[in-house]
Nucleic acid binder design. Structure first.
Length: 597
RNA sequence: GCUUCUGUAGCACAAUGGAUAGUGUAGUGGCCUCCGAAGCCAUUGAUCCGGGUUCGACUCCCGGCGGAAGCACCA
């Protein structure tokens, strides 16, 4: 866990964002004071089950056991060495075999919530986590001259959430779309373009037309060897840099990128770069040379490959970096990409978001990169291959249309909005159509996104429209509804949730539901920590769902707009912060929130 | 065959080695003269099997069984 060095509580009034980091630092200091072997002591502070407290420190158990000490006695020593400033903020107790439990006092909760009052303040609090680190995130990565399909959803949605999360937590993030814009398919596409182009169709939807051209050309070449030869020559010309072929290829790619951007816009995704495979094609020769010089690459069956003798499988399963026909492939361009991202973007971390089927490739890529960088004195970045499973249909197989084709991404998003529109119209028939369209856009696209982000990306998941558009359970509609309810409270009261006047004069929380909600809110920093540490957005999703549920319980149990001013103020404070945290969190996941629906 | 991912209530999903394994749906029973009932409250029900490591295992290791995927020039 990456934790910042943070100052301790100052008399309960000014509190730092990351409470767990405060406790961690305080316990380490207490270990020294109490005469423990401080270097060997890890407090292991983590969020606790609310029944036990807000945080628990488990480190004493292992420490005491290893030294044959009584863990409870060691815990006593530690606790009594904690500074008074910390004890003013928490109730501290020792439980069971030696857990140290910390429960935030109501006044501390109040101070923490008053301090963290805007998205900007939350962001500056979270920025300690990744401050000063540069990440290149590679996600999306479709082929050009082809429409995106449902298989691209997860990479886009998960990748974008990761970018937003890291940026929120202080990192400098570069979004790079590693397009598949170079390869043998272009012989066929260029041949098709020259002989079968439908200009009207190209103007209407370039990607659909390119896909059609590929199919038509492919069929024509199968029927006629002479045409096949022409298509092959088209590819040769392109690879040899023939000006005419290159110009046409560039035109196809530019039109493709423009069309892709339209869908990314729809999803609120903006890339900094579209550096596809073609960008690296002049850089692969140097890699063949360097890897051969370093003794890493060898000729095998006519191809240039890298083996990893120390590895049980990759000792014999080759990493092919140059095909036997002399052409590069994605292994060579990916190696070039690694070097470019370190050298050009000064990346501290490289994150690639692809489906789990590419595991072997990226494991081989990383093994090779480490040896290659070491041999050539390059700086080694962190590398994370963020994988995800398959989206399944109701039959448990990869989701397809009835005719067996992949579902086009465009069609999926259209259907999401249509279905959401029907739901909104059913629930709120009195709203003007333009409003219902806008709500349907947020709900429909949000539902598709949230379906992906709310579960562990490692697993496959079953896609079901009724489930993801349901208002019950861990869904986008439920969360968006919770947001609108909070907005509604302020609207009814004639107040602005961002205006601190409404919450001024709040006194400390008292009721069970007030305390439960305030404590849930104080759990945000720890959630950001685990979400970014594992690059698993579902941790944040689960938190937001629980927060919405805790709010709903509070809201059902406690009247907010009451006569007693301090009580009204503190409850409005809870509402304002719930709104802020829900909206901030949902925006990090890429969802658009609504004031009414 | 080798490897990776994955097995948790009828179904769909949670659980950075920590305390009594959480939630949703479906089932049952309650709650709107009251800030949005698209909601809330209560209740029934589960860790694939067998070993091991650990003070402590859904989690880590080993061996089975089931599902998905990858394994020489597609990405």
């Amino acid at each position: 866990m990456r934790v910042p060095v943070a100052p301790l509580l100052i008399s309960g009034m000014h509190v730092t964002f990351n409470l767990a980091a405060d406790l961690d630092a305080a316990l380490k200091a207490a270990a020294t004071t109490a005469g423990l072997e401080a270097d060997a002591f890890n407090p292991e502070v983590r969020p606790a089950d609310p029944r036990h407290g807000d945080f628990q420190a488990n480190g004493v158990l292992g420490y005491a056991k290893a030294r044959k000490l009584n863990p409870r006695a060691t815990a006593e020593q530690l606790v009594s060495a904690l500074p008074d400033t910390l004890r003013e903020g928490y109730d501290v107790s020792i439980a069971g075999p030696g857990f140290i439990n910390f429960t935030l006092k109501p006044a501390t909760l109040l101070a923490w919530l008053q301090t963290h009052d805007t998205a900007a303040h939350l962001k500056s609090g979270a920025a300690a986590l990744y401050h000063g680190r540069r990440y290149v995130v590679d996600y999306g990565s479709p082929n050009t001259a082809k429409q995106m399909h449902v298989g691209h959803v997860r990479s886009i949605v998960i990748g974008e959430a990761i970018c937003r999360l890291l940026a929120f937590c202080g990192a400098e993030v570069t979004r790079d779309n590693h397009l598949g814009d170079w390869g043998t398919q272009f012989g066929m596409i260029l041949y098709g373009y020259r002989h079968f182009l439908d200009h009207a169709a190209l103007a209407r939807d370039p990607l659909e037309e390119f896909e059609r051209l590929y199919k038509v050309a492919n069929a024509a070449c199968k029927a006629d060897p002479a045409k096949l030869e022409q298509a092959r020559l088209e590819l040769v010309r392109l690879q040899q840099g023939d000006a005419d072929a290159v110009a046409l290829w560039q035109q196809v790619n530019q039109l493709s990128i423009d069309s892709l951007k339209a869908i990314y816009d729809r999803l609120g995704v903006t890339y900094d770069f579209f550096l596809g495979e073609s960008f690296y094609r002049d850089r692969v020769a140097a890699i063949y040379h360097e890897l051969t010089e370093a003794g890493l690459a060898v000729e095998s069956q006519g191809a240039l490959v890298v083996f990893h003798p120390e590895h049980p499988r990759f000792a014999t399963q080759p990493f092919i970096i140059r095909k036997s026909d002399g052409a590069s492939n994605y292994a060579s361009t990916d190696l070039a990409t690694m070097a470019y991202r370190v050298e050009h973007f000064s990346a501290d971390g490289i994150i690639v978001v692809t489906d789990t089927r590419q595991n072997d490739h990226f494991e081989q890529l990383w093994l090779t990169t480490q040896k290659w960088f070491s041999a050539t004195n390059r700086r080694l970045p962190e590398f994370q291959h963020v994988t995800f499973g398959t989206i399944l249909g109701e039959d448990g197989k990869a989701i397809k249309t009835r005719s067996g084709d992949p579902i086009k991404l465009q069609d999926l998003l259209d259907e999401a909005e249509e279905r959401a529109f029907a739901l909104v119209t059913e629930k709120s028939p009195d709203l003007p159509e333009a409003d219902r369209r806008d709500i349907a856009n947020a709900v429909g696209l949000g539902a598709v996104r949230y379906a992906d982000l709310s579960q562990n990306r490692s697993s496959d998941y079953v896609f079901n429209w009724d489930k993801i558009l349901s208002f019950d359970g861990n869904t986008a509609p439920y969360l968006l509804y919770a947001v609108t309810r909070v907005h509604s409270i302020f609207r009814k009261a004639g107040l602005d949730p961002k205006d601190s006047a409404a919450t001024a004069g709040a006194n400390a929380f008292e009721s069970e539901h007030e305390l439960a909600l305030s404590r849930k809110l104080a759990g945000l920093p720890a959630v950001l920590n685990t979400t970014t540490a594992q690059l698993r957005p579902h941790f944040l999703s689960t938190y937001l769902y629980e927060l919405a549920g805790t709010f709903s319980s509070f809201y059902a149990a406690e009247k907010v707009i009451v006569d007693e001013a301090p009580v009204r103020a503190r409850r409005l404070l809870l509402c304002a912060r719930t709104l802020l945290f829900l909206e901030t969190g949902l925006h990090l996941l890429g969802l658009r929130t609504l004031a009414r629906m």
